[in-house]
């Protein structure tokens, strides 16, 4: 198996989807079952890594352009199926009860109601306007740009975080 010793591979090809599995078939090699992940899933969703079923690196690339055009939709689909980070578009209401903060939000994946506790531990500011919240069950939610939300959502976020 070809291993990349430094930097990113120029190109990778041979991705196929078969029977619900993602495989990498390279000429002269056994097909390997792979998963595709972002290297920086929170701050910069560009560079990707392919891992085999034992979690070992098969290849890392600078972006989906490293795949032939015909395989890019497969890459995108695999990423859509793996990454579940709802993006908050509107904060409808925030309520505090006995130290637990309840949030009613509208996300790109639909409305959601969650509870937040210990903000020191569960609120991560990736930049002054980009924040990730972790609710009490362990789900995460993202606000990509607080300044781009409507004024009342912004106010609720600033009051609560």
């Amino acid at each position: 198996m070809e291993r990349v010793s430094s930097g990113f591979a120029e190109s990778v090809s041979g991705l196929i989807r078969r029977n619900g599995r993602l495989l990498l078939e390279r000429p002269g090699q056994e097909p390997v079952e792979v998963t595709i992940r972002y290297l920086r899933p929170l701050t910069e969703r560009t560079e990707l890594v392919l891992l085999d079923d034992k979690g070992r690196e098969v290849a890392s690339v600078a972006g989906e352009d490293a795949f032939p055009e015909g395989e890019r939709e497969l890459v995108r689909e695999a990423l859509r199926l793996r990454y579940h980070l709802p993006v908050i578009r509107r904060v409808e209401r925030v309520e505090v009860r006995f130290g637990t903060r309840y949030w009613w939000v509208d996300t790109d994946r639909g409305p959601r109601w969650f509870a937040l506790r210990e903000p020191g531990k569960n609120v991560t500011w990736l930049s002054p306007s980009h924040v990730v919240l972790r609710d009490t069950a362990g789900n995460r939610y993202e606000v990509q740009d607080v300044g781009a939300l409507d004024p009342s959502s912004q106010r609720r976020i600033r009051m609560s975080l």
Binding site: G20, R21, Y83, L85, A137, G138
Partner: peptide, 27 residues
């Protein structure tokens, strides 16, 4: 284990079938 969710998969001879995708609430 996915990022921010989990997936229940039934494996049959040579194929994976996703039964459900669910949030951490239902682990």
């Amino acid at each position: 284990e996915l990022f921010g969710a989990s997936r229940l998969v039934a494996v049959t001879e040579g194929a994976d079938h996703t039964l459900a995708t669910y949030s951490r609430n239902l682990v």
